[in-house]
Simulated assay, not measured.
Amino acid sequence: MISRAGPAVLYDFDVSVTSAGAAGVAVSAWRPCLDGVVEVLHAHLTGHAYPMHAHDSWTLLIVDDGAVRYDLDKHERAAFGDLVTLLPPYVPHNGTAAHPHGLRKRVFYLASDRLPTDLIGASVDNSVFTDPSLRRRIAALHEVIGQPGEDLAAEGHFAEITERLRVRLGFPGLPERLDRTPARRLRDLLEENVVPGISLDEASRLLHFHPAYLVRSFTREFGMPPHQYLISRRVDLARRLILAGDPLWSIAAGSGFYDQPHLIRHFKRILGVSPKAFSKG
């Protein structure tokens, strides 16, 4: 879902855990409102060792501090530093910190249908790989997935991540030559929905292009991803409303932002001043 004017639900707390136990485990987990991601988990482990277990989802893991050792398909593996780890569904694995000071990790659990089941074998053979660009994209998704009003940014990052994972595991990727037409048609859709917003999945259905193809084509054509374009247009609209004399309390909803803090953050990022300072000027 893309953020829309007025209140919106970012998290569904049916799955929500925060704990700290004697074994030295601190965990925060939740289910975000992003199709294809069934759980987000941030953990700091210093004494706990996961026994052999399995998931019905893909486990996409980055380690921010320390290292983790695990067994997958009777082979010992490790994840640390800039590496990206992808564990397949239904294949048992375990896990423990490789150093006494423990580890910090961030995990996305992806719905099993987000990657072809044909890639499970490839993921078992190659569960860890170096891809700085992909790791940055994963980290960026972790940053925005918890921020109200940043749904389109999350969708864009997720589309690029899943496409990159498919390529990494040997699945044919998007064509190198990108058509300019879908980029311009997506821009028209964004222009028609500056305030209410439109999800990337909905745009993909309307334009009949893969979400990752839309993001990549748009970025190459206009020099910014779709979510940045939409935010810039909402800031532009907010400026018009300020200059028209609208009260500041109504401008966030009137220009498509989730709430006033969401408006203020992006207004200052783009213009260097807050909406209040801009109105006085």
Rank of each mutant, 00 (worst) to 15 (best):
A5E: 07
G6V: 02
P7Q: 03
A8W: 04
L10T: 01
Y11E: 08
V15S: 10
A20Y: 04
G21I: 13
G24I: 10
V25L: 02
V27A: 04
V27R: 10
S28V: 04
W30H: 09
D35S: 07
D35L: 12
H42Q: 14
H42T: 04
T46V: 10
T46R: 14
Y50A: 02
H55F: 08
S57Q: 07
D65P: 00
G66T: 02
V68I: 05
D73P: 00
H75F: 08
E76T: 11
R77H: 15
A78Q: 15
L83N: 06
L83I: 00
L83A: 12
L86S: 05
P88Q: 13
G95R: 02
G95E: 03
G95I: 03
A97R: 07
P100W: 09
H101Y: 06
A111V: 01
A111Q: 06
P116Y: 13
T117E: 14
D118V: 00
I120F: 00
G121N: 14
V128R: 02
R135E: 14
A139T: 00
A139S: 12
E143C: 01
V144Q: 05
Q147W: 10
Q147R: 14
P148H: 02
L152I: 07
L152Y: 08
G156P: 15
F158M: 01
F158L: 11
E160D: 15
R164W: 06
L165D: 10
L165T: 09
V167M: 14
R168C: 14
P172T: 04
L174G: 10
E176I: 00
E176Q: 03
L178I: 03
R180H: 10
T181C: 01
R185A: 12
L189D: 03
E192K: 06
N193M: 01
V194Q: 09
P196E: 13
D201S: 15
E202L: 10
A203D: 04
L207I: 08
L207N: 11
H210C: 00
H210R: 10
P211L: 12
A212G: 00
A212F: 00
Y213F: 15
Y213P: 03
F218C: 04
E221S: 15
P225K: 00
Q228I: 06
L230M: 14
I231Y: 08
V235S: 14
D236C: 01
L237W: 05
A238K: 14
R240V: 14
L243Y: 02
P247R: 11
A252N: 13
A253R: 12
S255T: 10
S255R: 05
F257K: 15
F257N: 11
P261F: 08
I264A: 12
F267T: 06
I270H: 13
V273R: 06
K276Y: 09
K276P: 00
S279G: 07
K280F: 09
K280I: 02
G281D: 12
